[in-house]
Simulated scan of single mutants.
Amino acid sequence: MTDRRSSIWWAVPVAVVIIALLCAGAWLLTDGLTEEESTAESRSDVELEDPPSKTEIDEMKVEALDGQFQVPSVGLSTGLETMSEINGAINPPGLNNGYVVRNHGTPDHPERGTTYVAIHSVQGAELPGNKLIDVGAGKPRVRSGETITLQDRDYTVTDSYVVPKTDISGDDRVWADEPGRLVILTCLQRSSGRSVDNVVIEATVDQ
């Protein structure tokens, strides 16, 4: 039908493409720093190359969520916010939290479908999203069987993989809406040059 299903499938690829671009679209404010000063601490001073405007942030209706986003195996522990996709784009306004996307999947009823969480990673930085990726190996650091905590629910990782940004919009593995499923999206950064791949981490809620 030109119905709801059609419109959803048109919206999803646009959102995915923009996620891919904006995860990579950040830069470190290290100009003028000595090598010693350019430490992990100074590298937390990062700006998005294409930050959302104040109007866009208002339309996202960003709200804090109770609970934490934790992946103990890689040392990730950060806060959570929720946001809406606007104008076909998922562009989290911050770099330090995970963002539950309220208008994809079924985040209000996680037991009924997929919950999507987007988090930025940045080349050369030490941010929460960077803990999910192994730049040198070119793959996710999170493996099957490991635990993710999202708010008051624990999930077990079932898969983690890399998808080229050019292919992710048509990858049925990513966009399947299945009960109790969690999908974490970030970018696989490289030692130099723009990110060309996404990291996808899938998990299922513990019973």
Rank of each mutant, 00 (worst) to 15 (best):
V101G: 04
D45R: 15
P140H: 13
D206V: 00
E49T: 12
A26L: 00
E85S: 15
T106N: 06
G79Q: 13
E37A: 15
Q68V: 08
L48P: 08
I8S: 02
I148A: 07
D197N: 13
I119E: 09
Q70C: 14
L65K: 09
R143Q: 15
L65W: 02
E35A: 10
S191T: 07
A203D: 14
A26F: 02
V163Y: 02
D134R: 11
G98D: 00
D206F: 00
G145S: 11
P51L: 05
L182A: 04
L28E: 11
A11T: 09
M83C: 06
W27A: 00
L182G: 06
E59A: 12
E178G: 09
E35N: 06
E146A: 07
Y116V: 05
N103A: 04
I133K: 07
D172T: 12
W27I: 00
S121P: 00
E41I: 13
R4I: 06
D171W: 14
V101I: 12
D58T: 06
E63D: 07
L185S: 00
E85V: 15
G145Q: 11
V101S: 04
T2I: 15
K61S: 02
V71A: 04
G88H: 14
D167Y: 02
G67N: 11
C23W: 11
G136I: 11
Y99G: 00
